[in-house]
């Protein structure tokens, strides 16, 4: 019991990290908002909040895959905008939805290949990808507009017995992600690879016979695909393609992942932590909105939060 408590509070000797703090923070914000804001604690408002948070939750889950193996994907924001632009081209959903996943997988594949085979630092690889994808998106759709398939709009806007549909999609996505991260050999291997990288023995899992490069590559592909899914959500919500909708999404996703107790050096983290982290971000946004804080200041506050959360993590490596 004592050991379990210690693990929960310090995150030491635990592979799930300090997610418990995120839960406490989330609860604290809920209590604070419940006391200060009228009609905050209604089921309608809470469901909406979760529905609002869906794209971030999904993106953060994808980001977590690469963070677990000590990487980072700065191209997810561009992938999200790109996805909305593709969906808004007006092609039938039967083609465009598989299409965006295929394209996202290609982007992830290039990121992953650059990192694993061509020895490029993940940050540089995904940063340049961010620019390339953003450029293509702006050519496709210089300003917001276009026609998003009706089925996408209905899937995001509708509700079932008063519960918004995104909540259902969210549950499905989280279940799938749980299977990938905590319920498969692949997920376990991601933790193992990240653990090796974080302790400076990059070769460790390879010596155990794990195909580490292939797994890292798949993590990048997965990350892009989750971003594409988030893009589909957003396209349904804004009912158009928008080259700027994904702007700074990568930063929010990294913040959510870090709040949830995932170590950016790799090998430590949890899905529930990430989901809670994303909800904390959504709750904060909700609270700041109801307190009438300017959008610009909100951005600045998010930056400060990122600095605080990541600044509290300790790692051996210096620099990038």
């Amino acid at each position: 019991m004592n050991r379990t408590m210690k693990r929960l509070l310090t995150g030491k000797d635990s592979r799930q990290g300090r997610w418990f703090f995120a839960l406490l923070i989330a609860l604290a914000i809920i209590v604070w908002l419940g006391l200060t804001t009228e009609r905050f604690l209604t089921s309608e408002n809470l469901f909406n909040l979760v529905a609002q948070a869906m794209p971030l939750i999904i993106t953060a889950i994808g980001m977590m895959l690469v963070v677990l193996v000590g990487g980072l994907d700065l191209s997810v924001g561009s992938v999200i905008s790109f996805t909305t632009a593709i969906l808004a081209l007006g092609a039938p959903a039967l083609i465009s939805i598989p299409g965006v996943f295929a394209l996202a997988a290609c982007i992830g594949l290039i990121n992953g290949l650059a990192v694993t085979r061509l020895n490029v630092h993940p940050i540089i690889a995904t940063l340049s990808m961010q620019f390339i994808v953003l450029g293509i998106t702006r050519i496709l759709r210089p300003v917001s507009g276009g026609d998003v398939p009706q089925i996408v709009i209905d899937a995001v806007a509708g509700s079932f017995y008063g519960i918004p549909l995104p909540v259902f999609w969210g549950i499905v996505t989280v279940l799938i992600a749980w299977k990938i991260i905590h319920g498969s050999r692949f997920g376990l291997h991601l933790f193992a690879i990240g653990g090796g990288i974080a302790s400076g023995t990059d070769e460790a899992t390879h010596n155990f016979g794990v195909a580490d490069k292939q797994k890292i590559l798949l993590a990048y592909v997965g990350c892009s695909c989750f971003a594409a899914l988030a893009g589909i959500f957003l396209a349904g919500r804004i009912v158009s393609g928008d080259p700027n909708v994904g702007l700074l999404f990568e930063m929010d996703a990294i913040t959510a992942v870090a709040i949830g107790g995932t170590q950016l050096s790799g090998g430590v983290g949890s899905l529930h932590g990430t989901v809670i982290g994303a909800l904390v971000m959504a709750l904060l946004a909700n609270g700041m909105n109801s307190a009438n804080i300017s959008a610009f200041v909100q951005t600045a506050i998010k930056g400060v939060i990122l600095l605080l959360v990541v600044g509290l993590q300790s790692r051996k490596k210096m620099g990038l």
């Binding site: 980072l72 700074l248 610009f296 200041v297 400060v304 300790s314």
Partner: peptide, 27 residues
């Protein structure tokens, strides 16, 4: 200080600082 002493990833520190400054100026 953040990169050298606190060992925080330089990308994250400097991008976050950037966001904070941009937010402040726009405000």
């Amino acid at each position: 200080y953040m990169v050298g002493k606190r060992r925080v990833s330089a990308v994250i520190v400097t991008l976050a600082v950037n966001i904070v400054l941009v937010g402040i100026v726009q405000f």
